[in-house]
Design a binder for these strands. Structure first.
Lengths: 166, 166
DNA sequence: GCGAAGTTTCAAAAAATACTGAACCGACAA
DNA sequence: TTGTCGGTTCAGTATTTTTTGAAACTTCGC
């Protein structure tokens, strides 16, 4: 396989993966492109490589920076902005966990709290509150487990953890 | 908050959560409805409750069964099919991990393998292969960690694990 | 075999989401 | 002050995804 084919295949597949994760195809492709790029790239270069418009590139780069997956890099003398990806996969996963926890798990916890206040004025209502209580319990545990996970370091994750639970 | 409001809010929120997870809104809503339903429901009842068409209900119920999140229940005497949700959240999460691993992580591992065969005939190609190698290493670790996680039981997950890593 | 009750399929329509391109903004140099 | 280079925004358009609804199919009792 040639380098060109390999790069294309990677960008392609990473894009597809992203889209089953609520991340849009282009955003994931930009991330893929930067991941495999030893040098920082400018918006122009990204547009060129992926054949996308300036607006599209700009919006998705912004979003990647928001997620902590890409950083802006200013080269001395150059007016243009350049971009590099976080290359450490454990950092990438950690950032995704942090962001999704904040955007999804935490709001859900708040909703579950509100819902628990349903008046238990019937058999049915009591059953409902009980089911919600269980979901809340589980979610809280997931929440703190993720917190701990995010604080732990990569070596722990890939090394000790696996042996410990075997 | 009344029972009706509570149920609606839960179905609503679970639906929204689903849609940021590559699961479509309706599928997540059906799942939510079944989760909080002490009794098995028929397709008719689901259609009625969520105001959706027969085709939509059928397709999404099938998909939920595929994911192992919902089971068909046949009541003696009745010709209709009824559906119940898996209520144990740990089982729900486990099934989602199993399915997504199969659908997303495993294909990506295969792609990474193919890509590693890029000829290292230039500096750039060597760097590329090296980055891919790192991603592959990480993905393999994630793969086996998830395998182990899925084999472990709920109590372990929520109890021991957290204390161990603190 | 026929009709009733229920399920499945899928082409077409609707809705949601992403992308484009052009206008606009700001910083800088001439 | 003006022109250029880049970044940002966003209304309109294109694409993708989801939903509908009707027809086809299946199963069963008569």
């Amino acid at each position: 396989m040639t380098l060109k084919e390999g790069k294309e295949k990677f960008i392609q597949s990473w894009g597809a993966l992203g889209s089953s994760w609520g991340i849009n195809r282009t955003m994931a492709q930009i991330h893929a492109l930067l991941l495999i790029s030893p040098e920082a790239l400018s918006a122009e270069e990204i547009m060129e490589e992926l054949q996308i418009s300036r607006g599209n590139a700009n919006m998705n780069i912004r979003a990647l920076i928001d997620w902590g997956l890409v950083f802006k890099e200013l080269k001395p003398g150059e007016r243009k902005e350049f971009f590099v990806a976080e290359k450490d996969m454990w950092e990438v996963v950690k950032n995704i966990i942090i962001q999704r926890k904040k955007r999804e798990l935490e709001p859900m916890l708040r909703v579950l709290d509100e819902i628990s206040s349903v008046d238990p004025e019937s058999e049915e209502a009591e059953e409902f509150v009980e089911i919600i209580r269980e979901i809340k319990l589980f979610s809280n545990k997931a929440d703190s487990t993720l917190d701990t996970l995010v604080k732990s370091d990569s070596n722990w994750f890939v090394g000790t953890f696996m042996k410990m639970i075997k």
